[in-house]
Design a protein around this nucleic acid. Structure first.
Lengths: 109, 109
DNA sequence: CATGGTGTTCGATCCCTGTCGTACAGTTGT
DNA sequence: ACAACTGTACGACAGGGATCGAACACCATG
């Protein structure tokens, strides 16, 4: 039987290929979320916990943004102790939406 | 001196290079607007008047969407008699936001 | 076991924007 | 001149989403 914790049970990941374009665009249209993605794109996988991002919003709001990114197939999350580590799903998302990530987060503004 | 009509005076176009990424994404995040862009992408320039699009909204709303697309540098408009013709600014927009248009309107959904 | 740290959930609030009806401006044809 | 057509402007409305505080669950460490 499954022995995952109640905490990990909140972590449902979606195949980017199953994500509607609308959901992907809604996720990418928010500046705070793009900021998170840019941060992830310049760091190694699984090195950034949710609380380590420098965001202009409170933690409740940040938690909401991470959930949206996860539901859009843009990030993967994994619990490590009390912290939740993140990974940008660059390759999977690129396969589903070629060029979209590059066009939105590889920019100055 | 300029002899443009009062109608044409409402038509201010913006260089896509001057458009903030946020405005571009906001414009592309709406399904009605993407529908307009897809329609334009498969027809010759200046062949589609605003009223010829099959949209699920009333004309006041459609007019709003055309204004948003224009402000985002995604379309160019020109008056021809009582009708306002449209053109997708594919090349200019692609230069400013490489891959973004293709990633958002060249899709099934 | 108590304390502090990390992150989620819930309810409430606020603001933005998509939507529409109506009125209006220009154009075309009768 | 008049009517019909195309599109915009404006005010109003409703829905959704971003935001936050507070409460809670889980983990780590003393």
């Amino acid at each position: 039987m499954s022995v995952e914790s109640a905490r990990a049970r909140t972590l449902s990941h979606v195949d980017p290929a199953e994500v509607p374009l609308q959901a992907a665009l809604d996720a990418l249209a928010d500046p705070v979320r793009r900021s998170i993605l840019r941060d992830l794109s310049v760091h190694d996988d699984w090195t950034r916990a949710c609380g380590t991002f420098d965001l202009p919003v409170k933690k409740a709001t940040a938690s909401h943004h991470f959930a949206v990114l996860r539901a859009a197939g843009l990030i993967e999350q994994r619990d490590e102790g009390a912290r939740r580590l993140n990974r940008l799903r660059r390759e999977e998302f690129d396969t589903a939406f070629p060029g979209l990530l590059t066009a939105t987060i590889d920019r100055a503004d």
